[in-house]
Amino acid sequence: MSTVQAQPAPLAEEAPVSLWRDAWYRLKRNRLAIFGLCVIVLLAFVALFGPYLTPYDFLSQDLEARNQAPSLAHLFGTDDLGRDVFSRVVYGTRTAFLVAVVVTAIAIVIGTVLGAVAGFFGNPFDRVIMWLTDVTMSVPNLLLVVVINASLKTPIAQWMEARYLETLNPFYRETVWIDFLLVFGSMALISWPPYARLVRAQVLSIRSRPYITAAQALGLSNRIILTRYVIPNALGPLIVAVSAGLGTAMVLESAFSFLGVGVNPPTPSWGNMISDGLRVWQHYPHLLAAPAAVLGLASVAFSFLGDGLNDALNPRGAK
């Protein structure tokens, strides 16, 4: 006999068909979007649990087994130092996700706050913020990142080195995070303007909707109206932009690493693996193919998901 009593479920847990559930229902029927979602979930899993999945350490070199073709022992073969390419691709996934998520998160916070303030409060905020956006967008992305990294990386590394020799504090010895910080910072700095523009446009259109006037007529404060009425209604297009933005950030990180201004070796990144592989691709094509294919897959997956979300969150556009 069951000991569980038939109790009426508490109301709060019982959500009726919400907008989000509706959107999920539409998303489920979009095969490409679901394919993208599966790939992303798989890659995210690999990124999270990478160290438990790899057969080798990404740094361990086996100079006896250099440049080997893919085999059962080395799924994607080995590189010129005899490192297992599969393990390096898995670690590269970590790097790619870390960069993509952190950069996109920073860019969205900056973009949403600036865009919402610009759109909701109007001039003079609008003018200043949009001016800032235009200036940022007018600087070529690559150039800005190269300048930041080239001008700051060496002095900071030297300063850290000097501090370490002075204090022997191990905190100053670890420079990998500086690397990440600069990459995150510079990429976020160039990534926020599109989000700011998107949110501003959304807020401008939402601001004139009757339910905002209705909320004002209820005497609610601007803060409540902005956070509970305006931003939640602007989220749909933002989610789509985020999905596409994550993919873009991954490609961007690879591009920077490829050019040597991103994550520094020996930390594996798809970009620097592609860069290394490109030099020897005529002889060892797998060194180029493996990271390039994974990068391509991830990028396509994010686009598909973004497209699917776009359709799912815009019921008017769907059949």
Partner: peptide
């Protein structure tokens, strides 16, 4: 139709 917040 439009004077209530659709996501609340």
């Amino acid at each position: 139709m439009t004077s209530l917040n659709p996501v609340m």
